[in-house]
């Protein structure tokens, strides 16, 4: 595993590059699409498509095994945040049934230097999309939405993740 970490280091880039590229994408989308709700939807879809591919990268790099419990999943998502965005969100606000939790962070590389126009845009909508896509590939259907957003004046950003169901049909042979 030691070699792998060194491989990761080699590919590290400045987070400002990501911030700027993402900003350019969002502002371009706002220019081209009139309806802000549609922009949110598109961002979620882009995130979903990224997540579907990114999960393989995550699994190939970490020695993750299948999660059979939501707390494990939360740990893995936290690990992914550290791996891909170099940030460490806190996992809090578990529901009593243990199928719903929040990820809370106060700084995210994606939303640095952003002043929001007041039009209902969910700037970081890519993240919940990516989580949904990635978990779907490991046969877990979840719902993801923002409860609080710093860009809208809240003290922290809070992303809620809710377990919907396990996609039993899609579980590969030898896993069920």
């Amino acid at each position: 595993m030691s070699r792998q970490t060194s491989r990761l280091d080699a590919k590290k880039v400045n987070s400002e590059l990501l911030t700027l590229t993402y900003g350019a994408l969002v502002s371009q989308m706002l220019k081209e699409i009139d309806n802000t709700d549609d922009v949110n939807k598109q961002l979620e879809r882009i995130g979903y498509n990224m997540g579907v591919r990114l999960i393989e990268d995550f699994l190939a790099r970490t020695t993750s095994t299948r999660c059979l419990e939501m707390r494990e999943t939360a740990d893995k998502i936290q690990q992914a945040f550290r791996l891909y965005l170099n940030m460490q969100p806190t996992v809090t606000s578990w529901s009593s049934s243990g199928d719903e939790f929040s990820l809370v962070w106060d700084q995210c590389p994606l939303s640095e230097w952003v002043e929001m126009p007041n039009n209902g845009l969910k700037y970081c909508m890519l993240i919940p999309g990516a989580i949904r896509g990635a978990l779907q590939m490991v046969q877990l259907e979840v719902q993801c939405w923002f409860v609080q957003d710093q860009l809208k004046g809240d003290p922290v950003t809070e992303l809620r993740v809710k377990y919907i169901k396990r996609l039993e049909d899609a579980v590969p042979a030898g896993e069920d």
């Binding site: 393989e56 699994l59 095994t65 299948r66 590969p172 030898g174």
Partner: peptide, 10 residues
Amino acid sequence: LSCFQTLTGV
């Protein structure tokens, strides 16, 4: 023949 199945089924 050696086979490895990922969690995603590949």
